[in-house]
């Protein structure tokens, strides 16, 4: 019975890992799970737009699934005066507290982060992989707190994706706004939102299976609302 539950959870975290792999720029030379993308029956042009404009840092409609961008950069509330930091409460900055924790976690787990993720150790793709690792290892308490602490920002990400849908419509830079491109981009946003919804569904089901965890700090709520 217990093993079935373990297998069920591992299967769900495996889904997370597979889904997570779709949130990166795979390009044409990735040795990661690009086959999954091709079976998600998405128009290659849309997928291409998604990768170059949305999922590339500094892209035309760059919105990366990176935890730091949607949370306070260096939460001062638990640090005190000596910990007061430049732009601590700002968002939309890479390498915030979540990324710092992830780096510490990778070190403990003896995991190497590939160079293309150097600026974003808290990228959704990697977070999903770590969740899957806990799932594979059967460490359910760790998995539960990990989901609670590191995958609690998907709503904020989705909100920004939604706001971006017609971001380029009003732009005055005509060079970027060929109609085809806008359509592709909007389709790309819709696609990535549907993927995100699957991630959210999977984490919801996982959390239901694992049982709710008490919020140990009350900080997550604060982060999320901010």
């Amino acid at each position: 019975m217990k093993d079935t539950r373990k297998a069920r959870i591992a299967a769900m975290t495996d889904q997370l890992r597979t889904l997570g792999a779709l949130f990166v720029r795979l390009g044409d030379q990735s040795d990661a799970a690009y086959e999954a993308a091709s079976v998600a029956s998405v128009d290659p042009a849309v997928r291409h737009r998604l990768e170059t404009d949305l999922l590339t840092p500094g892209g035309a409609a760059s919105l990366l699934p990176v935890e730091s961008l949607y949370k306070m950069w260096a939460d001062p509330s638990w640090r005190g005066r000596d910990g007061a930091c430049a732009f601590g409460a700002s968002k939309h900055l890479y390498m915030g507290d979540p990324a710092q924790h992830m780096m510490a976690l990778y070190e403990r787990l003896e995991i190497d982060v590939p160079p293309e993720f150097a600026a974003m150790p808290d990228h959704l793709t990697l977070l999903c992989e770590v969740a899957a690792l806990y799932g594979d290892a059967g460490n359910h308490p760790a998995l539960r707190s990990f989901l609670n602490e590191h995958l609690d920002w998907l709503g904020a990400y989705d909100a920004e994706l939604a706001a971006c849908t017609s971001a380029l419509d009003g732009s005055t830079a005509s060079t970027l706004c060929t109609k085809e491109r806008l359509q592709e981009l909007n389709a790309a946003i819709a696609h990535v939102r549907s993927l995100l919804k699957e991630v959210q569904n999977t984490t919801d089901r996982l959390e239901a299976e694992l049982g709710k965890v008490e919020d140990p700090r009350g900080q997550n709520r604060r982060n999320e609302e901010r």
Binding site: P76, A84, C85, A89
Partner: peptide, 9 residues
């Protein structure tokens, strides 16, 4: 002031 008090922009 925003920095030391952890205020958003």
């Amino acid at each position: 002031c925003q920095m030391i008090n952890g205020l958003p922009s």
